[in-house]
Amino acid sequence: MRIDARGMYYRDLNKMIHQAVKNGETEIVLDNVNGQRYIGTGINEKVRITVNGVPGNDLAAFMNGPEITVYANAQDGIGNTMNDGTVVVHGGAGDVLGYAMRGGKIFIKGNVGYRVGIHMKEYQDRVPAIVVGGTAGDFFGEYMAGGILVVLGLNRKPGDPLTGDYLGTGMHGGIIYLRGEVERYKLGKEVEVFELNEEDEKKLQPFLEEYCAHFGFELEEVLSVPFCKLLPVSKRPYGRLYAY
């Protein structure tokens, strides 16, 4: 099913999408999207939604199942408190991507903004993941409590840092994988850099493969630079903050 979203208010567009899902549609293509918010929100079915154009903020917020592919850049707040499903963006994405995400996967071909993966958390078999093809802004993985964040730094302009400052500040769970090295001053006080072990490689590989499949990169090329990982040094970063 195709919907021409030109000039449509988000509420009407989302109502149409929800109705289509209710009617059993499994493939929905949205043309001429420009700024409509909350696409994918409130949908619990495993449908595929293709977004042609720039979707509005909070794409896939509270989403629970769909697979969304965006053929453009995306804005802020993608995957807010997302529970399940996949978001693939053939472009860059803005700030606060994957806030409090607790499941599902997000692949961004290009760069992402500030506070990405903030307060992501995992529980049992639900392990959310975000793979960033380009670079990330400050406060990447802030308060991170679980899940997997990956930054590849592909196609970087010379001098572009892989990530911003305060990397993993407040992190107390989960793993951040970085392709390349990271300067110590960028790290939040709660994290430490480690080398990858075999288990890490096993964990990382499928995400890299999926990234390459989505965006047509060569896996060898991606693997040509060694990765490092960041882990929280304590599950209890704030233990000694209080008098008795």
């Binding site: 806030y99 607790r102 307060h119 958390k121 529980y123 409590a145 679980g146």
Partner: peptide
């Protein structure tokens, strides 16, 4: 508590001062 909060047992449950969105 961990089931209800949907976080691993024994880990701190931190609520940031603001909503980061």
């Amino acid at each position: 508590v961990s089931q209800t909060r949907m976080i691993p047992e024994g880990s701190d449950a931190i609520s940031p001062a603001p909503h980061h969105d």
